[in-house]
Design a protein around this nucleic acid. Structure first.
Lengths: 209, 209
DNA sequence: GTTTGTGAATAGTTTCACAGCA
DNA sequence: TGCTGTGAAACTATTCACAAAC
């Protein structure tokens, strides 16, 4: 395989392939094909083969893919082979739900710290995580935290972002419906739930466009 | 403007433009430019002009865009000019958070019904919404509900989907980390929080790819 | 025969640059 | 002059089709 720039879309799909591979692996089978994996995750087989082709030879023609090597290779590409610690800021409704959310563990994530501004919450625990005062949001670097999850009201999302970046956070999962500015070298992924729902009616039957 | 197929990416960006326009409108100004709106939502000005150009003439050269007409036109394109009722299924941590989530209202959505399987929850109210037995999930069509929000564990997401589709739901916002099968004419948008986080480490500094 | 890996073809999206209107 | 609207160019991603490997 020759080097080519890896499409962002390919990187975005890799976690889905990983989940599919983990699922198959748990059922006890040792190998799979692009067809089987494609049906499982809901894409076309050639898409999977093409995506994998950017990273080298994953499978064996006529045979398929070994699940164990597929899983370890994708884990390594996505850098999920080391555990990642995240700090969650904003223990409101959504923040609380995410603290209790089991899905992060699938990919080796751990919410290692939680922060809020509300005195009544500070000092308590939610889903086993101590809620700390957002005013002392620092030293995260020393605690091994490099990811941040922002679930605060939009008015304070930029302040929280700045604080996270100051303490060494390099990746942010942002749930607030506002564009947040970060310096070069920090990657932000925004999940704007209302906005995602907002383009659904466009595709409803009866639309004349 | 001549007719051309409207890119999905354009439709995906429209809610952001709408939010930006609403925000500016609330500050009291009456008009804006592609430059100002672009800075606000974090895209480039030509992107906005190009996106709007698919739908007709929105602005006036040398002047800009009238916010009130921009808002009503985008609302109409996205079909947000009528209120949309949604049924939420699965009142767990995430479901509860979404019931209390104020963001849906920005785009005219209302969670008009909630369902769960847990006897202890059925009959209670969360954020003002009565929790009903998922076993009686039907007649939603008669209640004017055309959208569904799925926040159940992945094992039951397909069953819930089938029930929603049977009762006339045409659009689904799916939070379960599983591909759900729907008949033609039903649109699904999946938000897989763990998966979105999973591709973040790839972009962290220090990655050699 | 089966299934991968991948160039080439196609499709889709972004960016540019500028004509034309206010 | 200022700003929109849009063809054309550049770029990116998807799909195809098939040679090579097992």
């Amino acid at each position: 395989m020759r080097y080519r720039k890896i499409p962002d879309e390919t990187v975005r799909r890799l976690p889905a392939y990983l989940r599919g591979a983990l699922h198959l692996s748990q059922t006890g089978v040792a190998s799979t094909s692009s067809k089987e994996l494609a049906d499982l995750v809901g894409v076309e087989p050639w898409q999977i083969r093409k995506d994998f082709s950017y990273f080298g030879d994953f499978g064996r023609p006529g045979v398929g893919y070994s699940l164990s090597s597929l899983i370890s290779q994708v884990n390594e590409i996505l850098r999920l082979d080391t555990r990642h610690k995240a700090a969650l800021v904003g223990v409101g409704n959504l923040g609380s739900a995410l603290l209790a959310f089991p899905g992060f563990r699938t990919y080796g994530f751990e919410i290692a710290a939680a922060f809020d501004i509300d005195r009544r919450k500070i000092g308590r625990r939610k889903a086993g995580v101590l809620i700390e005062d957002v005013a002392v949001l620092d030293h995260l670097n020393a605690r091994g935290v490099r990811l941040g999850i922002i679930t605060v009201p939009e008015a304070s999302s930029q302040d929280v972002t700045d604080a996270l970046v100051r303490t060494g956070v390099k990746g942010i999962l942002n749930f607030s419906p506002r564009r947040i500015a970060v310096p070069r070298g920090v990657k932000v992924i925004t999940i704007d739930i209302a906005m995602d729902l907002a383009h659904l009616p466009y595709y409803l039957p009866g639309n004349r466009r």
